[in-house]
Amino acid sequence: MFYASISAYITKVCGISDNIFHLLKQKVQHISDNDKLVNMSLDEMSLMANLTYDSTSDTVIGFEDFRFARTAKIANSVLVIMINGIFLCFKQPLLYYFCKGTVGAMHLTAIFYEVVKRLKEIGLVVKTCVTDQGSNFVDWRKRLGITQDNPILVYEEQKIYFFYDTPHLFKSIRNNLFRYDIIHTSNDGLVGTASWKDISQLYSNDLHRKYKLAPKLTKKVVELPAFSKMKVGTAVRVLSHTVAAGIDTLVFCGSMPLSATGTSDFCQKVNDIFDIFNTYSVKGPVHLRNCIRSDSEHLDVLHVTKPWIHSWKFVGSDGKDYSLGIKCVKGLLSNICAFEMLAAEVLTGTKLYLFSCKINQDTL
């Protein structure tokens, strides 16, 4: 990890640090071209508004500060940009900006191009870019011409693939399943309905069992009290193979209605998609969590899954269709398209393998 050896050179001044880029240049000049491919993550987080005097720089810290434009507004959030290797194992925070609210699309564009340019000058190539689905990041992608079916930007003959953070997408899918029934149609034409009621029934059925079918389904995971909806960990416990198998078992035993298979099928397929976007081992017991190669089944699974995702309809308790307002579906389809294009470029005709877990915001 590069940041461990150069953290002492990070200044308290917002914006790009020449020291970091100078030391990164020395670190990367002897690595291979593939190892120079990096993922860039952009994320914002809230801060407690406060002003502090820094005697070393003789400045007051806490105002909105984009380095090239400092205002009198007191900042309440921070934008952080970090890179990590796609093939080489390293990560490095690059810069931060204090801001009032969110950073607008115009400022994001200027910051992004400047960072890509500086990285290219020292030999690093930005191949992927990851953000969440915050409204400012969605507007920024539109400004760059990024679309669901063509999530790619060509900058000075350099292709950059845009992703939404996959863990955030799956958290959003869980939250919408909690709120709506999801009607889905398989590629064979079979229609099923995923319902949170089936998950609650599985949990209730397990309450008095000594050996539970879904031991990770807890009251907090099922009822989702305050702040639980913000946690990815509670989402993957629901959209899992264990929950799918548990519901299927109760249906087989006659303890749940046959319609509950719509929920088990949904949980299993979403679980498989998450595994593909979270590969982290070379050879493990769960084959879809193993590294992705040009001839592996991961890309085939994603390809046949796209029509199924397109079929999702989100129906409320009032019977109305709320599908048009669901952003996570478009984000997931965009990610699949970006991943197929990325794999075609970097894996086809090579013996390289890819860990998809490196294309998310976990480093941040």
Rank of each mutant, 00 (worst) to 15 (best):
F2Y: 09
Y3N: 10
A4I: 13
S7Y: 10
A8E: 14
I10P: 03
K12D: 14
V13T: 15
I16R: 09
S17K: 11
D18H: 12
H22Y: 11
K25Q: 14
K27H: 12
V28K: 07
L37E: 02
L37V: 02
S41V: 07
S41T: 12
L42E: 04
M45Q: 01
S46A: 10
L47P: 00
M48Q: 03
A49G: 02
T52G: 01
Y53D: 04
Y53A: 03
S57M: 13
D58F: 11
T59H: 11
V60W: 04
T71L: 06
A75Y: 00
A75D: 01
V78A: 00
L79K: 01
L79P: 04
V80I: 05
L88H: 02
C89G: 03
C89A: 10
F90N: 02
Q92N: 08
L95C: 13
C99I: 06
K100I: 03
T102A: 14
H107L: 12
L108D: 09
T109S: 14
T109E: 13
T109W: 11
I111F: 05
I111Y: 05
E114R: 11
K120L: 15
I122N: 05
G123K: 05
G123R: 06
V126Y: 05
Q133E: 00
G134P: 03
F137L: 07
V138L: 10
L153H: 12
Y155C: 10
Q158P: 04
Q158H: 14
Q158R: 15
I160Y: 02
Y161W: 06
Y161M: 03
F163W: 00
D165R: 06
P167E: 05
L169A: 00
K171T: 13
F178R: 11
I183Q: 14
H184C: 11
T185P: 03
D188R: 06
L190R: 15
T193D: 07
T193M: 12
Y203P: 09
N205S: 14
K210P: 05
K216S: 09
L217C: 13
K220D: 15
V221I: 15
E223T: 13
P225V: 14
A226I: 12
F227K: 15
G233Y: 06
V238H: 10
S240N: 11
T242S: 08
V243S: 04
V243C: 06
A244Y: 03
G246P: 08
G246F: 07
D248K: 15
T249D: 05
M256E: 12
M256G: 10
L258M: 11
S259P: 08
D265M: 15
Q268S: 10
T279M: 01
V282S: 12
K283R: 08
P285S: 09
V286D: 10
E297A: 13
E297C: 14
H298I: 04
D300E: 15
V301E: 02
L302F: 05
T305M: 13
T305Q: 09
I309S: 02
H310S: 09
F314E: 05
V315I: 13
G316D: 10
S317R: 12
S323M: 02
G325V: 00
G325S: 07
K327G: 03
V329E: 00
V329P: 01
K330C: 00
T348H: 01
L352F: 01
Y353W: 07
L354C: 00
S356K: 03
N360V: 02
L364M: 01
